[in-house]
Design a protein around this nucleic acid. Sequence first.
DNA 1: GCCAACGTTGGC
DNA 2: GCCAACGTTGGC
Length: 138
Amino acid sequence: MAQYWLVKSEPDEYSWSDLKKAGRDVWDGIRNYQARNFMRDMRWGDTVLFYHTGKERSIVGLASVIRTAFPDPSAGEAGDWSAVELKSGRRLKHPVTLAQIKADNALKNCYLVRNSRLSVMPITADEYNRVLVLAGDT
DNA sequence: GCCAACGTTGGC
DNA sequence: GCCAACGTTGGC
């Protein structure tokens, strides 16, 4: 049973387009235990929604998990951190904004709204499907 | 640029 | 083990 996730990134630092250009990339540098633990629950082939923070504040595209959690190479000896590897998917037809998400009954209780500082989070299949509807991308 | 929310650190 | 102080994130 596939699971669904959402990861956040500041596009000036690493955008969905950067991942698209790279094709696949290591998702590392996460230094929050809750986010780390969610990454450790990711399984091969899981679908990931890619959210841009900052000015954009919207879900812009898809990705998928192609390598499950391994020791974060950027952490060195600094601690027990994990990374995964993501493959780029398609861009959403229309970005789904945070304002839309907050205004939507099916989405307003998701982690993105409840805990705005969390950078890796699970979403339900229903929430995922709703995002695709709002994206005009079913 | 401000500030609320959250996590971490360190004094006691 | 509590909590005040501080740092960071990210929405506004």
